[in-house]
Nucleic acid binder design. Structure first.
Lengths: 255, 255
DNA sequence: GTGACTTTGTGCGTGTGTTCACAAAGGCTT
DNA sequence: AAGCCTTTGTGAACACACGCACAAAGTCAC
């Protein structure tokens, strides 16, 4: 209905799934480059990137025909082509909003600067943090958000605040003209059409691991007999049973 | 070929894509629960989780038939069922390896404790950090890794070290019996069959954003004329051109 | 108890992604 | 220059995921 994003298949023919893998290839290529390797076969590169070689070839074929049959791909050349396709040949100005533990970690993360991402500003709502220098950058107050975005020409905002503050700040950065947001807060951000949001959620990944871990051990429900939930109204349900009456099963902090 | 994981469709019928969304639903449900909501329709919950309502219903139907037609889903009951399916009704013991900026952020992250994940140990190779208390936990030396895993019955290892150290440490935790690894280091970890690895890469997400951002502005290549790479050997290529001679286009730090 | 209304659960068509397998293409050797 | 060998690029089959649209199932009002 209203506001479907529906941008599978990127923008111009490159499938979304491929785009998501290009950075992985790029990293593998950098690593090869450091070791002085000049040429790789799809088989080698695929293995370094942890994917199937046919998939790798098809992915690369979306960028153009950059390999040499019988030989492979020239590392340096491919690095450039992927970088260019991803937009890493130009600089992107990033602002990090929220300078808690995570914000600090991000500010100091080498992987940003090395890929054409320039962290130009750190912002926080806590007055006592304003002015503090972190990774060589003075923290600005969140009240200056719009001004800072404008000043530095920020094009990507990284939200590393508590969940409760995230949507409001997101609205503000979008209103200020930012069209790409990387969200670390555990909430679903809603944004207008044309704005991209990507989400990184630390605890979701753990939960997925827990699911598989549970399956490795024994089925769900963890064992003996019916597990809790003394059937207060729910007659016959499909699978599994239910927890003890009034308990709060998980504490629910994130909001 | 050898060692294909190929576990689409989880373990027992629940599609991987569904598993990945369950934590999102769970979060939305917790938020509703806090607001005292007792019942939700698929439409409401879907909107809170940022997905299509048909998809939500299909996802939930994989767990069993937990809704009431004409009414919706009972929040508390659904919270329990999803928690149980994900394995959050039992406690998972987590060790965080690497206590740099990121490791600290993770150690203090509320989203873990609140979901049945108990951070039982922090480890680092830096002698000067050993003994320091972070979020109420004393840092142990990485030499004690195996002992710590055994002591606490660690079942999930979080790797938050530099890339160079990651594979070696991964091998060690796997040898010590851990079968689930959450990797923040920018490398592809290789593990034996039966071990699950999930990867969180901060810079990959940014690169994907950059790709889309570039598309919004103007095509790739950033503009006027042919962009660099003075055709040193590459005659006629498919798309786009190439960068200036001997330059290192991106600095390549992560290894 | 009956009927109108709401909302679930799902069958089905469509599109996306993955993998196999092979022809086309290039290099290298003789 | 001819033929062999390697590796790419892709056609085609398959598997998975998504979302529409609707029948089945239940509630609520009267």
């Amino acid at each position: 209905m209203t506001r479907r994003h529906n941008r599978t298949r990127g923008d111009r023919g490159i499938p979304e799934a491929t785009v998501a893998r290009l950075p992985v290839y790029l990293r593998a290529l950098h690593s090869l480059q450091e070791r002085g390797v000049a040429t790789v076969s799809s088989e080698e590169l695929a293995s370094a990137a942890g994917v199937n070689s046919a998939k790798l070839r098809k992915d690369l074929s979306h960028l153009g025909s950059y390999g040499t049959r019988g030989v492979g791909y020239e590392v340096e050349y491919l690095v450039y082509q992927i970088s260019r396709e991803l937009g890493l040949t130009q600089d992107w100005v990033v602002a990090i909003i929220g300078v808690g533990n995570l914000g600090r970690a991000l500010a100091g993360y080498g992987g940003f600067a090395s890929r054409g991402f320039r962290v130009a500003a750190l912002l926080d709502a806590d007055e006592s943090l304003v002015g503090e220098r972190i990774s060589g950058l003075a923290v600005r107050h969140i009240d200056d958000l719009e001004q800072v975005i404008d000043e530095h020409g920020v094009s990507i905002a990284v939200i590393a605040t508590p969940a409760a503050a995230a949507q409001g700040l997101c609205d503000r950065v979008v209103a200020a003209g930012v069209t790409s947001v990387l969200n670390f807060a555990p909430v679903v951000l809603s944004v207008p059409e044309g704005v991209d949001v990507r989400k990184v959620d630390l605890s979701i990944e753990l939960q997925i691991l827990a699911f598989h871990e549970q399956r490795k051990n024994g089925g769900p429900g963890e064992g003996q007999g019916t597990d809790g939930w003394e059937g207060n109204g729910h007659g016959e349900r499909a699978r599994g049973d239910e927890p003890p009456e009034t308990t709060q099963y998980v504490e629910a902090v994130d909001a």
